[in-house]
Amino acid sequence: MRLGVTFAAVAAVALSTAALAASFDYALKPQKVADGVYTLIGKTENFSRENGGNIVNTGFIVGDDGVIVIDAGPSKAYGEQQRAAIAKLTAKPVVQVLLTHAHPDHVLGLQAYAGLPVATLTATTAALTQSGDALLGNLYRLVGDAMLGTEIRLPNAVAADGAVTIAGRKLRLIAGSGHTDGDLMVFDVATKTLFAGDLVFFQRSPTTPNADIPTWLATLDSIDALDFAMLIPGHGGVLRDHAGIAQTRDYLQWLRDSLQGAARRGLDMPEVLQLPLPERFRPLAALKTEYERSVSHLYPAYELDTLPTVPRSKPP
């Protein structure tokens, strides 16, 4: 008898969980930015239960024979609603998913694309293999019910740097790094539209949990040299110029110089957290939060760089 009651309770919880996940509405509205090219613009705030983790830009390209999706969003529910939004615009099937990098707001919607080719850089697959469960758990903690039912799904194909034709659409896949160890960009040749992923932020403070700032700055220089007509950043509004590249570069250079200078002056972390932030960055969303996060995971390395090198003793 007790066993029957337990099964009934579990079933009730399962049904309640499914209903909660299904009830979160991301209100996704694809924005057409060029011929056959669409983006879904997320908020520029921090993760919250209110936004369901929708702080990311995703997109899709409609080719002759199908649809290419670029990033799957932060949850199973997002991925399903993203796919439904695509189906409202075209009867062509989704034939390919491309992931820009391993951060959870870009990849956790993959369950909606089961059975399809999902390609990304090898470094991204490695990061998800190693840290995917931790990323998933953290987003559950931050976002809550919108994540219900979400599980890790790994990419099943490698995206190689260079020209490729998918669904009759000519693309250029560009391998970069700096924001993470693997940052894939997708360039649509016909419209000169660049999906830059989180290598470019606009009007939103860059996130740096896996950043290598010198490498990131070098990658920004290479993006600056590209002949694009439209740039879709990982966070922030669609751009028709290089303003997002310049803003991201300016912030990263200031962050590097500020932390290096603080370490050389011998400041401890609480003191660094109290340093004034430049007035020009005040309009950036999530500035205080992202600065504090950057200090917490970047500053120890800058402090270490200031320590004197202890010479090795010669063997007797």
Rank of each mutant, 00 (worst) to 15 (best):
E279T: 13
T306H: 00
L259M: 01
L273S: 01
A286P: 02
K288Y: 02
E290V: 09
S258E: 07
R256Q: 13
L284T: 04
L267Y: 06
L298N: 04
S294C: 07
T309E: 14
A301P: 01
A301M: 13
L277Y: 03
R282S: 14
Y291F: 12
P278K: 02
L304N: 14
L277F: 02
S296D: 12
E290Q: 14
Q260Y: 06
Y299I: 02
M269N: 05
R264I: 08
L267Q: 05
L277E: 01
Y291K: 13
D268E: 12
T306G: 11
D257A: 08
E290G: 03
A301K: 10
E290S: 09
V272E: 01
V272M: 02
L267H: 03
G261E: 07
T309G: 14
P308E: 10
G266T: 10
T309R: 15
D257M: 05
R264C: 05
R282Q: 14
E303N: 12
T289E: 13
A263Q: 03
V295C: 08
D268H: 08
R264L: 06
Q274W: 00
L287I: 02
E303M: 15
S296Y: 12
Y299H: 11
H297A: 02
D268A: 10
H297C: 06
L307Q: 14
T289A: 12
A285S: 10
E292R: 15
Y299A: 02
G261L: 01
P278Q: 01
E290Y: 12
R293Q: 14
P308L: 04
A301H: 09
Q260C: 01
P270S: 04
P283H: 04
A285C: 03
P276I: 02
D305C: 13
P300H: 09
P300A: 10
A301W: 05
H297E: 10
D268I: 11
A301N: 13
S294H: 04
P308A: 07
E279G: 01
L287E: 07
A263P: 01
K288P: 06
A262S: 07
R265G: 03
D257H: 09
R256T: 14
R264A: 11
A301D: 13
Q260L: 07
L267F: 05
K288N: 15
V272I: 00
Y291S: 04
L259N: 01
V295R: 11
L267W: 00
K288A: 13
Q274R: 10
L304Q: 13
D305E: 15
L267I: 09
F281H: 06
L304V: 15
T289N: 12
P283E: 08
A263L: 05
R256V: 11
A285N: 09
P278I: 01
P278F: 00
S258G: 10
Q260G: 03
L275F: 00
L259R: 02
E303S: 15
L307R: 15
L275I: 01
Q260M: 07
R265F: 02
A286W: 13
L284S: 05
P276T: 10
P270Y: 06
P278A: 05
L277N: 03
T309P: 06
L298M: 06
A285P: 02
L259Q: 05
M269D: 06
